[in-house]
């Protein structure tokens, strides 16, 4: 059986791919760095991976809007592969800029590729916010946060465009909210700087209705080692590793 490789999909301007790969490996997964260029050139295919993560950074300089160019390129060049990947029930995670990319590609929250129904806009402060945040895990179905419902995860957050907006100023149905910024007492908060970007309802992580695609603004990979101030982020990658193990086991037994 092929090892369950996790694709860390990156593009020019992505700058968190190495630590994300390291966090996957520390959690027991196997990560492979995959350049968007290689995918577009047909050097490798998304289907050959069991899961994928789009890491943080400033892909294409965040020009025209964070994640905008990368998202447009995904739709223009890889829509077929992405559909196949998602339809086969594989998990996909977007961290920070990766979340912005998934939103700009229309994949989050409703898997409507090429059709955007969400935006991540400038923080309310109108500048980049480098903070340590607490995330309250909500009860939305999500393979990445399984078993963590109701717990607080501490990890760094660092972005300039992380405030969710939805069409017609509506809010997001609860089943899509995976994570919320929380205050010191563990309650969801709109207050700065515990909520560094001004997200309404403290929304910090969004999941699709199948519970497979998660996007979050904070950085779990930066809280995954003994040398870090927190190792809470590792739990998200451990969930991935566990899911991949279970899936491998299921495939094996059915075969």
């Amino acid at each position: 059986m092929n090892p369950a490789f996790v694709a860390i999909l990156y593009a020019p301007g992505t700058n968190c791919h190495e630590e994300t790969a390291a966090a996957v490996e520390r959690a027991g997964g196997r990560a492979e760095l995959v350049l968007l260029y290689d995918l577009a050139a047909g050097q490798t295919r998304l289907e050959s991976f069991q899961a994928a993560i789009i890491p943080g950074g400033f892909s294409y300089g965040d020009h025209l809007g964070a994640g905008r160019v990368f998202g447009a390129l995904l739709v223009a060049e890889l829509a077929g592969q992405l559909h196949k990947f998602l339809d086969s029930g594989k998990p996909l995670l977007g961290i920070c800029n990766g979340f912005q990319v998934l939103v700009e590609a229309g994949i989050l929250p409703s898997r409507s590729m090429g059709q955007r129904d969400m935006a991540l806009v400038d923080n309310q402060s109108a500048h980049f916010e480098d903070r340590k945040v607490r995330l309250l895990v909500s009860s939305a179905r999500c393979v990445w946060t399984e078993g963590l419902v109701g717990t607080i995860l501490e990890m760094p957050s660092a972005h300039g465009e992380g405030r969710p907006l939805f069409p017609n100023a509506k809010s997001l149905p609860a089943k899509h909210v995976a994570l919320r910024f929380a205050d010191r007492s563990g309650r969801p908060t709109d207050a700065y700087p515990d909520n560094p970007n001004g997200a309404a309802g403290g929304v910090a992580g969004v999941v699709d209705s199948k519970g497979l695609v998660l996007g979050l603004m904070p950085h779990p990979e930066r809280a995954s080692l003994p040398a870090h101030y927190s190792q809470d982020g590792l739990k998200i990658f451990q969930n991935l590793a566990n899911w991949l193990d279970r899936r491998a086991f299921a495939t094996q037994t059915s075969a």
Binding site: N15, C16, D130, R131, P156, A158, H219, R222, H228, Y229
Partner: peptide
Amino acid sequence: AGARFDSTVQGRTSVGPYGGKNH
């Protein structure tokens, strides 16, 4: 000013520019 600059990118930061219980 300092909180406008990413201090944890690369996942190598152990003690960043701001610390303590309140970070």
